[in-house]
């Protein structure tokens, strides 16, 4: 009896345990057939359908382009000294301007002493602030000269991003992968992803923020265009095959004062499972396919329907002053 139990446990461990091994935020191979059984039907894994309702789809081609123009910017990693190091750095210029206006500004030193971290992870930076700024603000396009201080486009973008540093949006859809014991790599699940783009994209024509790294790193980008193709599968009425093309502005630009959008695109493939209800297909769950099993979004943030919170980790930065400078650049 005990021998049988040990054999059963060994069998169970080698067959199914892979799914239960903590992945520490990164992808490990798994048997796709097993995953639906482990799909958690609780928040945050079903936040999209909890808010927007059940996903129904029809085969066909779908497309939208956002009614707001997003833009590219450098993402200012935390290990870089660019924001404060030189006399012509963005924060040195900001201090000079603020002092001309009568403020005792010391943003440059504050950044150097209390924000800059030479040991910051190599993916940490202002991508969250940039992605949010890009879906909410017009792009600073022209350099600005005030009190003999020349703010280049890169300086202006840096100041705007710093003034939005602590803005995270209203709601994350999908669980943010923090490499904890309960982080699920497969999240955000494709059915949740598709319902989100149906509502925020195809219906509202909104840009949105997407963390395109399913692991623990965060790479937020502003998405402005999506194309999606849904096809039926021969001899299987319980599944639809989907291919979705997501266009976003890239933070990897190679000109300091770049203006406009450097577009990149991700291709996501997934199957949606469910049943037909008349002419509509009611989706109950979805599975990422092929390379999208490891390369899919982590979470999505919709465009907030409010003014953004202007708060920085650098307490010397006053958003009113930033806006005074920026208004000449639009």
């Amino acid at each position: 009896m005990i021998r049988s139990l040990i054999l059963f446990l060994l069998f169970w461990n080698t067959t199914f345990a892979q799914e239960l091994i903590p992945t520490y935020g990164e992808f490990i191979p798994f048997d796709e057939k097993d995953i639906s059984e482990y799909r958690p039907q609780i928040p945050p894994f079903i936040n999209v359908t909890s808010k927007y309702g059940t996903l129904y789809v029809r085969p066909g081609k779908y497309e939208y382009e956002a009614n707001h123009k997003v833009w590219s910017s450098h993402w200012f990693p935390y290990y870089e000294k660019e924001l404060f190091e030189k006399d012509n750095s963005p924060l040195a210029k900001y201090d000079a301007y603020a002092r001309k206006k009568g403020y005792r500004s010391n943003a440059r030193e504050f950044e150097r002493q209390k924000v800059y971290n030479e040991r910051a992870s190599d993916w940490e930076g202002l991508c969250n602030a940039w992605a949010m700024a890009a879906i909410m603000f017009p792009e600073p396009k022209r350099s600005v000269r005030l009190y003999n201080i020349n703010f280049e486009v890169r300086d202006l973008k840096a100041l705007l991003l710093k003034s939005l540093e602590l803005e995270t949006g209203d709601q994350f859809f999908g669980q943010r992968n923090n490499a904890e014991w309960d982080s699920l790599y497969a999240d955000i699940y494709p059915d949740q992803f598709h319902r989100f783009i149906q509502v925020e994209g195809f219906d509202k024509k909104n840009p949105f923020v997407m963390d395109y790294d399913a692991g623990y790193q965060v790479w937020n980008v502003p998405v402005y265009k999506v194309k999606s193709t849904i096809k039926e599968v021969e001899d299987n009425s319980e599944v639809l095959q989907v291919k979705t093309y997501v266009y976003y502005a890239s933070p990897f630009i190679f000109e300091d004062n770049f203006v406009g959008i450097e577009t990149e695109m991700k291709i996501y493939q997934y199957d949606l499972y469910g049943a037909w209800e008349g002419e509509r297909f009611r989706v109950t769950y979805g599975l990422w396919k092929e390379s999208s099993r490891w390369d899919h979004p982590d979470y999505l943030i919709p465009r907030p329907e409010r003014k953004l919170k202007r708060e920085s980790r650098n307490k010397e930065i006053i958003s009113k002053i930033v806006d005074e400078i920026l208004k000449y650049s639009y």
Partner: peptide
């Protein structure tokens, strides 16, 4: 093409080159 990568064990500035 642009080639980007990280060595996960590193925390330096090799990311974007």
């Amino acid at each position: 093409f642009i080639f980007l990568f990280t060595f996960a064990a590193q925390a330096n500035s090799n990311t974007v080159k």
